[in-house]
Amino acid sequence: MQAQALKRTPLYPLYAQHGAKVIDFGGWELPVQFSSIIEEHHTVRTKAGLFDVSHMGEVMIEGPDASAFVQSLITNDVTTLQTNQALYAAMCYPDGGTVDDLLVYKQGEQKFLLVINASNIDKDVDWIVSHAKGEVTVENVSEATAQLAIQGPLAEQVLQRLTATDLSQIRYFWFQQDVDVAGIKALVSRTGYTGEDGFELYVSAADAPSLWEKILAEGKADGVLPCGLGARDTLRFEARLPLYGQELGADITPLEAGIGFAVKLQKEQDFIGKEALQKQKAAGVPRKLVGVELIGRGIPRTGYPVFAQEAGEQDEPIGYITSGTQSPTLKKNLGLALIRAEYAAVDTPLAVEIRGKRVEAVTVKSPFYKR
């Protein structure tokens, strides 16, 4: 059997010029780093970094029943959106498990753009199409669409030099359509997945390489660097932003993952998974996502078992690490863990099993970092 070729974004031809180290990420050939993960991380926290996130999926839903259809798919309440406003939500299975987490952009009364995770594009599109009802069209525009993200405290001032549109007027989780950025038409959204201020720019795939080069050239004097998946992961981790396949999944509900703010159980229209989530909330969420700091030596990694500290050799784990690293900003060995709710209170002593040895740990407040 021939191995399936890795998918590439429109920016792939530019990676080598910028020194990218490329890896297989969920079937995509993407840069894990350009300079170093630590340098890129600190650059985003203190200046600004530019990310290629063109592997993300985009689905356009249009038609007279688009709003009602999107409302039936997602946990959040799309009726609260004005045109040019976005929200974060989950799509759920009937049992409350998570199909995906996503952004919903209201581009008009009958037009919604859904931004989904790269590893879930085919599955999500099938899910959306199979549940479509009413007068709607569903179009997967992922291949025609590229996405760049400029993130960090200098993001606005660097990007502002490339456009006549007043970026300060775009509030958090709002966007503008058809913005001219360095001669390229873009949807510019004040969103991102790093815990910093910044913008995500949606452009045609053909325009992406030119926009990438123009932003890097404009930001060079400000210290703007191209950034890879490694820094994207440590940045989102510190800000406690969930990653599908780790903090969220088919067996993890949005309530367990701590994104209950995006689950509107009181909204009038039913959505897939609503009943299961209502029951889970009423009974008490059985597991919770918590921050964990290692007191002993070691770094908590995805999948490591977590035990109550007084647990005996025969005791079952109370959960597991979903993500973990040595935090570049805080210089501490931190993890996110999905554990039984009765152990979730801050300052609860725990143990994380690292290569057969139990290492002392404690639950801590998260997000670990706030700007």
Rank of each mutant, 00 (worst) to 15 (best):
G97K: 14
A3H: 15
Y369T: 14
L14Y: 08
A283T: 14
R297W: 13
K365S: 13
A311K: 01
R340V: 01
D166I: 07
Y172S: 13
D197T: 00
L167E: 02
V141P: 00
L14H: 11
P13S: 08
R171M: 11
S54D: 11
T363N: 13
D101M: 04
P64G: 04
V158S: 01
S210A: 09
Q71W: 12
E293N: 13
L154G: 00
L211E: 06
I61Q: 00
N117C: 14
E360L: 09
Q176N: 11
E310H: 14
E310R: 14
P328T: 11
E135Q: 08
V136H: 03
P226I: 01
I321E: 08
I38C: 11
R297E: 15
T194P: 02
K133P: 12
P153S: 02
A164T: 08
E238K: 09
V78M: 03
A344R: 01
E156P: 00
A86C: 07
A341G: 07
S119T: 14
A282G: 03
G108W: 05
G192C: 13
E353H: 06
V352M: 10
L225P: 02
P13K: 09
K370F: 10
T43G: 04
D166Y: 10
V346N: 08
R236N: 02
A90L: 08
Q71K: 13
L330V: 13
Y172P: 12
L167F: 05
E40R: 08
L148D: 04
V181C: 08
L81P: 01
P328Y: 14
M56W: 04
Y15S: 13
G298D: 10
V359G: 03
T325I: 10
T83D: 03
Q314H: 15
L102V: 10
G49V: 05
I339H: 02
N140D: 05
R371Y: 04
